[in-house]
Computed example of a mutant assay.
Amino acid sequence: MVKYCRFALALVWVVVLMASLVSAAPSAYAQGTSFPRTVTDVLGRKVELKAQPKRLMLAEGFQIQTLGLLDKNPADLLVGWGGDLSALEPAIYATYLKAFPKLAEVPVVGAGTGDTFSLEKALAVSPDLAIFGAWQVPGGVQDPALQKFEAAGIPVVIIDFYRDPLKNTVESIRVLGEALGKEAAAKAYIDFYNSRMDRIRSRVAAGLPEKPTVLLHAYPGLWPCCWSAGSGGTGEFISLLGGRNIGADKFPTENGGQLNLEFVIDQDPDVYIATGLPQLKQKNTLSVGWGVDKAAARTSLAGVMEIPGIAELSAKDKGRAHGLWNFFNGSPLNILGIEALARWIQPTVFADLDPDAAMAEINRRFLAVPFEGTYWIDLKEPSRP
């Protein structure tokens, strides 16, 4: 899927301090007070920080949720941010604005996407650290935006929860923790994340009883069927869990692409998963996410399953039709989406996974603004043991 038509929703450890800094002041560094320091971002760039950043520019406004994992008052750090959160998740934006009214005064430097980002506005807010998603710097280490920030003496770190989430989710949290002097908070979330992922990986390694075909269908009802996940991005989650993504061979990137309806019907995937957003209220769209209750989410999924062609898929009658919040792709909360996918793709192996409990723990222990609503839904309510 293209950016913001992505599905929502990492275990590589990266050393982000120079060894000399660690050995020189280990106790101070562990408390996040040792600056200057050098961190290594997900592109392998070494970024020198002369002092603990106090003025952040978030090129992707959606990542305020990520900042909220590390700092309970993320708005206090911002001097500029992307406008994508207000445009694409207005309910989440409104909740953050209520919690942190000063966000209304933070200058918007673009809509979050590369073609709307204003370098001039970003430089004008004089950040002491700029944070970009890897998808926002298509030129990589040679991207012109990075070079202009560097020329202005403004350090930039690159994070990634979208292009290569299995590799970069943990790495990105670690990079942010080191860059912001929030190592303890970063470690706490990484430990939580790794404990959940380790359980999934160990069971996958022990062997899976089936390799079902899967269609991850982004935003059904908004355009002709069917925008599918590719092999990268969210498609990595399907592969990890032993699913055979019917769009993987056709779209070998994180962006995905359009599948022909006849192809989908011919493939008749064993598992059908729609993605959606809370504000989608049109006929045959999936309304799921912030502020949506389970009954409304299930009703909207039932409407999706009435779309001509989709209605004929055998997954509907087999109880293997589901709905998922779209923006687990591109978020360190992707562990919740992975657990939901695991239950759907390998129900006998992961029946005991409880993403609701995981979300409750994330809300209690980590997030500055707790998640509210329904983020995954089954067409048929699961039977209770």
Results as ranks from 00 to 15, higher is better:
residue 242 G to C: 01
residue 289 G to Q: 07
residue 165 P to A: 08
residue 335 I to R: 00
residue 93 Y to M: 06
residue 117 F to K: 00
residue 10 A to I: 14
residue 15 V to W: 14
residue 8 A to V: 13
residue 315 A to D: 02
residue 166 L to Q: 13
residue 153 G to L: 07
residue 196 R to S: 13
residue 53 P to E: 04
residue 378 D to T: 13
residue 55 R to K: 12
residue 107 P to K: 04
residue 282 Q to D: 05
residue 287 S to A: 12
residue 213 T to V: 03
residue 72 K to Q: 10
residue 180 L to Y: 07
residue 258 Q to Y: 04
residue 110 G to V: 00
residue 3 K to M: 12
residue 56 L to K: 08
residue 235 G to P: 06
residue 149 F to S: 04
residue 295 A to W: 00
residue 120 E to R: 05
residue 13 W to M: 14
residue 64 I to E: 02
residue 236 E to M: 10
residue 19 A to E: 15
residue 148 K to R: 14
residue 193 Y to V: 06
residue 109 V to Q: 00
residue 95 T to N: 12
residue 299 T to R: 13
residue 144 P to L: 02
residue 231 S to M: 02
residue 51 A to E: 08
residue 82 G to E: 06
residue 136 Q to K: 04
residue 195 S to I: 10
residue 306 E to S: 09
residue 336 L to P: 04
residue 221 G to D: 07
residue 90 P to M: 05
residue 356 D to V: 12
residue 367 L to T: 14
residue 226 C to I: 05
residue 47 V to C: 03
residue 122 A to L: 01
residue 335 I to V: 10
residue 140 G to E: 10
residue 198 D to P: 01
residue 238 I to Y: 04
residue 28 A to P: 10
residue 94 A to P: 12
residue 157 V to S: 01
residue 256 G to P: 02
residue 94 A to R: 11
residue 93 Y to N: 03
residue 322 H to Y: 15
residue 14 V to W: 06
residue 205 A to F: 09
residue 35 F to P: 02
residue 20 S to D: 11
residue 350 F to H: 06
residue 306 E to V: 05
residue 40 T to R: 14
